[in-house]
Design a protein around this nucleic acid. Structure first.
Lengths: 213, 213
DNA sequence: GGATGTGAATGCATTCACAGCA
DNA sequence: TGCTGTGAATGCATTCACATCC
């Protein structure tokens, strides 16, 4: 099947399968069925099988999936069998938390450089990196061969920072600023808006308080 | 139309419409068409109209939507026309960043209490709040009438913290721990896994590097 | 003319159900 | 028997296209 016509939700679920499988691996589970894996994540067994089937045949009829094997396959599909260098723009509170976050390194993401436009922050040590001015961005991207960038900057600055990332050659942006970015074809943006997440919960709270039927 | 049968993706988009409209409001735009709003977010005009139509008739034929009016309607639908008290469990790096994050307050979320199981953190001031031991959770939830909780704790601790939140009466959980939670009917969980977001970008990077057709 | 709101048509994603293999 | 992989069937979500209103 052509990669381009795989349902985006399936690709998203892949990450959760992988996460769950690593948990199973940690407790030394050798093999798992689509039913068990689905149950742990709230999906049906058919969903699980179909999702994997988009990418190949990873299971063993009568047995299930070998955890270790499947973890390897999923990493390969998701690209996390390789190390990815990532840079960060924005050395504020959130930036600090991102740099300290263990989960990125655990998946093989490596912090290559940190930037901030505020001169008072420049030069400070930050997760083993010195905070550098944005002007050094293009050099760093080329020199370090970085493809991915995280933006933890205020909404007002976000579009212009994104433009600079794109100009420097960055191909994927993880955007924590609460604004939508315009980027050219060939550049991917993944947005994470913390307030939107809470807002969605607020919606569900409002629902359950007026369910009067 | 019954709320239960509105497409979940539509509800999710509502948050982005609202965000975009607040931007338009900030630059004093009075009125906007479904086409213009969609363009700013990468949706079709039909999508925009249908999404709003699930909830009522907010537009004016020939004119479009009055920005101010629509902002008010969306807030009401999403529940952010009211103040929501939120508590936080986990006073680590990420917790610190969440407390400092302005975006929550801007949407009317109010930090009611902060908890951490680590005694060395307890008592410290944290976003205008003293960090308290988890044992005080039930009291705080009842006393302060809190419905929402954010969890910024390690994956290993996440399920047991979630259990305590549920036991204390919390109805919505924003989970930053990289693990899936089991909660009873009537409790909502919204997960935010930062590493998963980067992983999804990694996938798209891998795609574009082998597009050889 | 310029826009919304909406049934009907299309296109996607999920689930069913079963053949086939260990 | 227990489980996968997969075409066929179903069920959702999006888009079309047009009646309707300012």
């Amino acid at each position: 099947m052509r990669l381009e016509q795989i349902p985006p939700p399936a690709i998203y679920r892949l990450s959760f399968y992988l996460r769950q499988l690593e948990d199973f691996k940690r407790v030394s589970r050798q093999t798992i069925s689509s039913k068990q894996l689905g149950q742990a994540l709230g999906y049906t067994d058919a969903q699980v099988r179909k999702d994997f089937a988009y990418f190949g045949q990873f299971g063993h009829p009568g047995i299930g999936y070998r955890v270790d094997e499947l973890v390897g396959q999923l990493k390969k599909i998701l690209g996390t069998d390789k190390i990815w260098k990532v840079l960060l723009v924005g050395a504020g509170n959130l930036g600090r938390a991102l740099v300290a976050y263990k989960g990125f390194a655990a998946k093989g993401f490596e912090l290559a450089a940190v930037f901030d436009s505020d001169p008072s922050k420049q030069g400070l040590a930050f997760g083993g990196q010195k905070v550098r001015p944005i002007s050094e961005l293009p050099d760093a991207v080329r020199h370090e061969q970085v493809k991915l960038g995280m933006m933890a900057v205020p909404a007002e600055a976000a579009q212009s920072v994104a433009d600079e990332l794109v100009a420097a050659g960055i191909k994927g942006i993880l955007n924590f600023a609460p604004t939508s970015l315009v980027v050219p074809e060939g550049v991917s943006v993944q947005g994470v808006d913390l307030a939107v997440q809470l807002e969605q919960l607020s919606f569900r709270m409002s629902l359950s308080s007026n369910d009067s039927e």
